[in-house]
Design a protein around this nucleic acid. Structure first.
Length: 83
DNA sequence: CATTTGACGCCAA
DNA sequence: TTTGGCGCCAAAT
């Protein structure tokens, strides 16, 4: 974790299957409770399949966006949360 | 280097 | 409940 993004990646990678964290939660775990926006920017610019970014949603409960398409994100969440 | 944009969050009206 | 405004951070231009 040499930068904030590294921390964000670590946090998101640690999200267990069937669970979802809000951008703010991820930001807090990464060390900046106000960097929710930055988390989205980071996940958006970083395409890493090792990062289950589909488990990161808004605090409102809405999914937000996804680099593979919101439809895919909804489907993944539905499947993972359903189990 | 300065400015703008955006997968966000919270508050007030 | 919905809309508008402000704050915060990282990446893109």
């Amino acid at each position: 974790m040499n930068s904030f993004r590294e921390k964000v990646f670590e946090v998101v990678k640690k999200i267990p299957q069937g669970k979802t964290l809000s951008y703010k939660e991820v930001a807090i775990k990464a060390g900046n409770s106000k960097a929710a926006r930055a988390v989205g920017a980071i996940l958006r610019t970083n395409f890493d399949l090792k990062i289950p970014c589909h488990r990161v949603i808004k605090s409102d409960g809405t999914t937000g966006g996804y680099n593979r398409g919101v439809k895919q994100k909804l489907k993944l969440l539905k499947k993972e949360k359903a189990v």
